[in-house]
């Protein structure tokens, strides 16, 4: 899987790097990586940039991952872009809300690159 533009949304810069490394270890060649520290920053990034994949934490300050996902249908550059939630909490309620709002999958922290691969590759394979 090559030339993927990924948006990684997490309030931890360390976690954003770990997610990026996991994508690379999963064999996903990243053409560009955008980082955002919360949902509002991510929406700002999407106003100006097209991406192929969004990986998003749930619990974040300013705008959490659930609210971010709910707002994505109104963002032109996010149309058809798969969103995978990455969560520490693992709350089933939050996961259900995220999936109902349009997220395509979720990964619970701690995770392995294999889990990232398992969740992300099928979604990227749908890319036209």
């Amino acid at each position: 899987m090559a030339n993927i533009r990924a948006l990684i949304v997490d309030d931890s810069s360390v976690m954003r790097k770990i997610v990026e490394r996991s994508l690379l270890r999963a064999g996903i060649e990243l053409a560009q990586v955008f980082e955002a520290g919360n949902g509002a920053e991510a929406l700002g990034t999407l106003q100006q940039n097209k991406v192929d994949l969004i990986l998003c934490d749930i619990n974040m300050p300013v705008m959490d991952g659930l609210e971010f996902v709910k707002q994505l249908p109104g963002v032109e550059n996010a149309k058809g872009v798969p969103v995978v939630m990455i969560t520490t909490e693992g709350s089933e309620g939050q996961v259900v809300q995220a999936l109902s709002a349009g997220a395509r999958g979720y990964i619970r922290k701690p995770f392995t690159p294999e889990q990232v691969k398992e969740h992300v590759l099928p979604l990227l394979a749908e890319k036209p």
Partner: peptide, 11 residues
């Protein structure tokens, strides 16, 4: 270190 603690608590 904070993330390790956070993930341990969540896990």
């Amino acid at each position: 270190v904070g993330e390790v603690c956070n993930m341990t608590a969540g896990n």
